[in-house]
Design a protein around this nucleic acid. Structure first.
Lengths: 148, 148
DNA sequence: TACCATTCTGACCCATGTTGTCAGGTATCA
DNA sequence: TGATACCTGACAACATGGGTCAGAATGGTA
């Protein structure tokens, strides 16, 4: 029962973008270095976030990424779903279960999915960036599971 | 963001045990056949559930498994945690994050974990069994992701 | 126009986890 | 004593996740 590192990296990168001054784009490599994220991997994530309309990109020299909307209009739910697909805690969901009426387990998974969506939807990127800057002045280096 | 088939199978098997008459033990193979669960795999799950104190087993002829407690005293949370380990949605949880104060992402994962635990804790095995018998009279055959 | 910075895309690799299977051991009852 | 059924550990096949790499496309800048 866990989210992948994609969500972790994505949230960190977007918090980074939120604190970037003005609307000037930030290069992926710059974010990657600051946050300790593998650069090539981060590019993939940013591409997904762009396709989801969360981020906009400008190519060429002095290009990079910037938020497509205000940070208070972006929720953690959007980010996670953009990076991991829809929140579906099990294979046997109501409409995919072999049984017509669904089985009792399906109602459990539906409730869990709703709870997760509610929890994630309660966080805006603006709040996260605020929390972050309150947590520390030093550069953020939350580096989960780096293989040495 | 999903639970594995272990939880699915475990819930189905325990619902099956709940509706078993009296306290007489039910053989694992019997449950497996009725629910369409691979027998040897189910044995592993039942062993985990026994170690978690959710189920008690009696060996030998006419042996089998039965609930260790009343069905209203067993929650879906217990079952899922027994089969999949603790609900930890990400690697970077408060106490495991490299940063001392934790990063902003950690608070998100903590909230999500709490929401999932609450949702799962809201379901008792008794309610699930009741839901199930209300859903159908026919034998339950919720068979997720059978290969062919 | 030529060059460079940067995004973009797809293919690929490796480690790990999931979903089982199998063989044999052990306890209990008839 | 034999049949039944749990118990345990090893193992195999497959899917997924995490990450790398090469190269193409695009747009600023000199």
């Amino acid at each position: 029962m866990r989210l992948s590192a994609r969500s972790e990296y994505g949230l960190l990168a977007l918090v980074d973008l939120t604190t970037a001054p003005g609307g000037s784009p930030v290069a992926a490599r710059e974010i990657a270095e600051r946050r300790g994220i593998p650069p090539a991997f981060l590019e993939q994530l940013l591409a997904d976030l762009r396709r989801a309309g969360i981020v906009r990109s400008t190519r060429g020299a002095h290009g990079g990424f910037a938020l497509a909307r205000g940070a208070s209009a972006i929720t953690a739910l959007e980010i996670v779903e953009a990076l991991e697909g829809p929140i579906v805690p099990s294979v046997c969901m109501p409409n995919e279960c072999d049984r017509e009426g669904g089985c009792a387990a399906a109602t459990v998974w539906t409730d869990v999915a709703g709870a997760v969506r509610d929890a994630l939807g309660g966080f805006t990127l603006a709040r996260l960036a605020e929390d972050q800057s309150r947590l520390d002045r030093a550069p953020l280096t939350c580096t989960p599971r780096r293989n040495t």
